[in-house]
Design a protein around this nucleic acid. Structure first.
Length: 284
DNA sequence: CGGCAAACCTGCGAGC
DNA sequence: TGCTCGCAGGTTTGCC
């Protein structure tokens, strides 16, 4: 799925098409995604003007002019696709797994498509946003000012799980997923198997820096496209070409000069049910 | 409370 | 060709 860089890229793609526009028509094509849609979902959005498109962790937040906020999560396979106004005036036939269609007052269409339906949408309002159950427990934004080595160290203190699992925990730091955790640990030269509590001081500083750097580079590349992910414009992301370890089992580690025939190159292990990729020579 | 496996759902590629 | 299996970018739940 879309991790923080992919969601950020989607938000940046949506903003110029939605901000300042009125939602003229909203179509909900099934009763639920991961959760049921909230009552009167379409009615509450139709006719509202979009004030801003923002992001918190992996959530897309669409702020409306009456204080309503649409919270959307892309899950593993969710996409937002922008379609300009068609010239023949005929609305396009919905594709498989097109679940929600937003049409603005200039005829632009934003379609939410999600084959696996791990995504979700909910409505809340501005005043209650930070207390929303989905957002309340999130850790700091890794690209924000409230994130640093000492802050990370404090949040990892006392944790007996592997650092890999701790970084996937959205209450520790918000927005990392399976790809960028592997990449950040590689860049920080820390073993994914290391106990989280041992990442303090200079190691935590290194890791915090690596997290920010990897995320910033991924956003600059438009995110990573493996199979499902597309930018809202339909373009692919390009960060997958810059992966150091993710999905590179057996390939040479870009930081090592050692012989792949001897070391086996990048290793893949399974931690709490999910693949982790790392270099055993470089990461300790 | 902490940590882990399983569950949610669909699609795709590999192997037989 | 067609089947089965394993795996996939996330999050929650339930069990120890």
């Amino acid at each position: 799925m879309p991790e923080l860089p992919e969601v950020e890229t989607v938000c940046r793609g949506l903003a110029p098409h939605l901000e300042g526009r009125v939602l003229a028509r909203v179509v909900q094509r099934r009763p639920d995604l991961r959760f049921p849609f909230p009552p009167k979902f379409c009615e509450r959005l139709t006719g509202r003007r979009v004030a801003a498109v923002r992001r918190r962790a992996k959530y897309i937040l669409v702020h409306l002019d009456d204080g309503t906020v649409l919270i959307a999560h892309l899950g593993m396979s969710g996409r937002m696709m922008i379609t300009p106004k068609s010239h023949d005036g005929e609305p396009a036939e919905p594709a498989a797994h097109d679940h929600v269609i937003f049409e603005t007052d200039d005829g632009t269409t934003v379609t939410f498509n999600d084959a696996r339906r791990f995504g979700l949408m909910d409505l809340t309002d501005e005043a209650a946003l930070n207390e929303h159950p989905l957002l309340r427990t999130l850790g700091p934004e890794p690209l924000g000012n409230e994130f640093s080595g000492p802050v990370l160290a404090e949040r990892l203190a006392g944790r007996m799980s592997p650092i890999k699992a701790a970084l996937l925990d959205q209450t520790v730091v918000a927005g990392l997923g399976n790809i960028y955790v592997s990449e950040a640990l590689f860049q920080a030269r820390l073993s994914p198997k290391r106990m989280a509590a041992t990442v303090s001081g200079a190691k935590a500083e290194r890791l915090a820096t690596a997290v920010r750097d990897v995320l910033a580079r991924a956003i600059a590349a438009g995110g990573s496209s493996l199979k499902d992910y597309r930018q809202a414009s339909g373009e692919l992301g390009y960060f997958q070409h810059q992966f150091s370890v993710y999905d590179r089992e057996g390939q040479p580690c870009p930081g090592c000069t050692c012989d792949v025939a001897k070391t086996g190159g990048v290793r893949r292990i399974v931690q709490s049910g999910r693949s982790t990729f790392y270099c055993a020579q470089r990461q300790r």
